[in-house]
């Protein structure tokens, strides 16, 4: 619909103004609460109000000098990196296979790949808990990484699968016909060409693990306390401005990472755009 039509009546213009006004309020509702934690975190006082007498990085210093938070940060990073390293190759291979699959089993396989995203996280969490508790994997690093990998693979599959949509598989056929073995085709042709898509998938896998709270609540032990766990406990017991500082850092981190993922995704779309004929 064109935004300005010459034959628009005053009534239509009023309706349009009403629409824009309502949407402005909804946009404010969507964005402002998340952004509001930023000024709160810069308040020098211990009250959760907007700063009036200047800004301070006091709560960020507090965050950096707190052993609990720094350990949680290290845990989050190591769990997320391990998850990314597992989920990215698994998801990438599966997405390539899925893109070329013509079998009747394809919808079922695709359904299973998406299932961890659809099943409520609490259900996934207690399923892991019941499984891991008798095996002694509860309160362990390996258990948490495995569980996060299950949750992260759907994102890798979806993003890489999307990146493959414009990919010209004739190139694979050409390389194979020139004598390249399948692994060479994969490493020298396919992966470089859909590289940005794979990188975007890896970023999503990292973020999935880094932000994950529910599964960690059930199966992480005291030695695996992650940043979301630390925040959850803090909000539940006593909200201090330190939490707003942590929340601010998380907002910045996820915006940067997912902005990167978006750029990578666009780049992969450009690289594999089918030639105009």
């Amino acid at each position: 619909m064109s935004p300005v039509s010459p034959w628009r009546s005053p009534g239509q213009r009023a309706a349009r103004a009403l629409l824009v006004g309502a949407c402005t309020l909804v946009f404010a509702f969507l964005v402002l609460p998340t952004l509001a934690v930023i000024p709160l975190s810069l308040n020098p006082s211990a009250f959760l109000v907007f700063p009036e007498d200047g800004l301070s990085l006091r709560w960020y210093r507090e965050l950096m000098h707190s052993p609990a938070w720094t350990r949680a940060f290290r845990n989050s990073i190591s769990v997320a990196v391990a998850t990314t390293l597992l989920a990215t190759p698994l998801g990438t291979l599966a997405a390539i296979g899925l893109a070329r699959m013509k079998s009747r089993a394809k919808p079922f396989i695709a359904g299973l790949f998406a299932a961890p995203m659809v099943v409520p996280v609490v259900v996934v969490a207690i399923a892991f808990y019941f499984l891991f508790a008798p095996l002694g994997l509860v309160n362990g690093f390996a258990g948490l990484v495995l569980a996060h990998t299950v949750l992260a693979t759907p994102f890798v599959v979806i993003v890489v699968h999307a990146a493959l949509q414009g990919f010209d598989f004739e190139m694979v056929r050409a390389a194979a016909s020139l004598g390249a073995p399948p692994t060479t085709v994969l490493i020298r042709i396919l992966v470089p060409l859909i590289g940005p898509g794979i990188a975007a998938g890896a970023v999503f896998a990292f973020m999935t693990s880094f932000d994950e709270t529910v599964v960690a609540l059930f199966i992480a032990g005291p030695d695996q306390r992650t940043i979301p766990l630390q925040m959850f406990e803090g909000v539940r017991e006593q909200i201090s401005p330190t939490i707003t500082a942590a929340a601010t850092l998380l907002v910045i981190a996820s915006s940067l990472l997912l902005g990167t993922a978006e750029l990578l995704r666009r780049r992969s779309e450009r690289m594999n755009r089918p030639p105009v004929s």
């Binding site: 609460p33 998340t34 934690v37 932000d211 709270t213 979301p228 925040m231 959850f232 909000v235 909200i239 939490i243 707003t244 929340a247 998380l250 907002v251 996820s254 915006s255």
Partner: peptide, 8 residues
Amino acid sequence: TSALVRTT
């Protein structure tokens, strides 16, 4: 942004 951050 994570649901936890927004809930917080």
